[in-house]
């Protein structure tokens, strides 16, 4: 079973997304802030991490940087899932090592799950 960690502080988004992914047969772990997310990633070594950029205490850019620098976490793919969409943000996260970047408001839940499967298949 493929493992996914969702790092998202919005409980509603966190819940709908994790329910959807569980239904599609993934093993899902959730973190409401960056620090917990990084600790969880070290422990679980997931196939994929879904990362929000706006997080309390440590922002998503910093979380991404630390994930990609950490020996245990750098091999997990990261999809950045956010509502920020300036071209600068997109470039920055791709530069930092994210696999892809999705704007939440532009996709329905099923479309996002399809994108996640596509990304995992490319691995």
């Amino acid at each position: 079973m493929q493992k996914i960690i969702i790092i998202e502080d919005e409980r509603s988004l966190q819940k709908t997304l994790s329910d959807g992914l569980i239904q599609d047969g993934f093993e899902v772990f959730s973190a409401l802030d960056g620090e917990t997310g990084i600790a969880l990633a070290k422990k679980e070594k997931p196939d994929l991490i879904l990362l929000d950029l706006i997080l309390p205490k440590m922002d998503g850019f910093e979380v991404l940087r630390q994930l990609k620098m950490g020996e245990e976490t750098k091999s997990s793919m990261v999809i950045v899932l956010t509502n920020l969409e300036s071209s600068g943000d997109v470039e920055k996260v791709l530069e930092l090592g994210a696999t892809t970047y999705l704007v939440k408001a532009n996709y329905g839940l099923q479309e996002i799950i399809e994108k996640i499967k596509e990304t995992l298949n490319k691995k």
Binding site: E10, S12, T16, Q110
Partner: peptide, 26 residues
Amino acid sequence: HQLRTPLSATRWAVSTMLAGGQTEED
């Protein structure tokens, strides 16, 4: 941005509910 987050959440929740298969509790 503030409206986008609750809008995304409601959109996703509604599509999950429409897909069906939940328990009463869900």
